[in-house]
Amino acid sequence: MTDQQPLYRAESDPDWNTVAAGTARVTLHPDESAPEVIVVSGPCPRCHHETVHAEPLITYANALDGSGLLARLLLRRAAATGSRDVEVICACTATHPEAGERSGCGASWVLHVEWGV
């Protein structure tokens, strides 16, 4: 029933930020004392389908690179400070017209996540 789904559009609306802040479930992994990834799940404020987004705080792109080590140290400090703006892009599994190979409805919204509060 794809004609009942909203068309795929890469767009954002500040109102969606407020709606999603009330409905999103946010967890830090592996734990809140030394988080490496923020997982945001909940309904898309546009198409209302469930979606999940993983925001990396620590990456291991080049595990032995000197600058990578420095970047990771800086990232660890950033992770320790306890806040991050996370932009979530809808990645629901529903079929949206004009989505092509892309998943979701194209909507994005921004959440401000604080931990250690």
Binding site: N17, T27, E87, L111, H112, E114
Partner: peptide
């Protein structure tokens, strides 16, 4: 963990 509305999205942030 506290979640609030973030700053409006921009093309760069997207």
């Amino acid at each position: 963990v506290r979640v609030t509305a973030g700053a409006p999205s921009t093309p760069a942030s997207r």
